[in-house]
Design a protein around this nucleic acid. Structure first.
Lengths: 112, 112
DNA sequence: CAGTTGCTTAAGCATTCACTTAAGTATCAA
DNA sequence: TTGATACTTAAGTGAATGCTTAAGCAACTG
């Protein structure tokens, strides 16, 4: 629970970069090796690996090395954490709008 | 549509900072002035305003000045944009896991 | 009109970020 | 064992980030 809050920083930070979001999108279709992941991007391999490290540190991606190939896959828990945070905020805000709506409706009733 | 994708960068970037997330959380309870918003934070007012500018540029927050008071409120559309992106990713990933599950189930059937 | 309040502008500064190139180190394949 | 493949490590660089202080300005308050 405490860990999750700390990690929200890193998760949002990780998702703020379009290359990293691209990698997440790719990985949502299934696991991939580092060089597979790198292919669509016009940057050096070390740059890709650095992005990958950010993604892994945030918990969005897990990786595992077998032989000389590192395989990367989505870790759903981090995505759930984001989803939950955003959802909770939206709920709060919408509830407020509802209450405001009720209030205005009552005001109108009073006036009519 | 195109605008939204560009803005995902800024939205996630905005949410990556705990102070800014704090401000969003506060604003989900209702609008607030800049100084109200600043109160919980141990930083200078200009710093708060700079955070606010990031939030506004991302579309998460709208502000409006009346007299000398600037009132800030949540703009739900940006939160929806995040929610949609994360939701779409999760759906893709889960569908993949389902297909994988089916595949493994079939394999087991074959073996039995 | 003078003072206070609520923000705004500007400039500076240390740190972090997103890369780069160059030089490794393990595998695997022939 | 030689070469190619798949990363890995290290060091450097320019730009962006998250602050700060100092000074302003406009609007309400008495």
């Amino acid at each position: 629970m405490l860990k999750q809050l700390q990690r929200l920083d890193e998760i949002f930070q990780a998702l703020a970069d379009p290359s990293r979001r691209g990698m997440v999108e790719r990985l949502c279709l299934g696991p991939a090796s580092v060089s597979e992941l790198a292919k669509p991007f016009a940057m050096s391999l070390p740059a890709v690996v650095q992005h990958l490290q950010v993604l892994e540190a945030s918990g969005l991606v897990r990786t595992e090395k077998v032989g000389r190939v590192r395989t990367c896959r989505i870790d759903d828990a981090a995505l759930q954490t984001v989803e939950r945070w955003v959802n909770d905020r939206r709920k709060l805000w919408e509830r407020r709008l509802d209450r405001l709506g009720d209030f205005l409706a009552e005001e109108n009733e009073d006036k009519s």
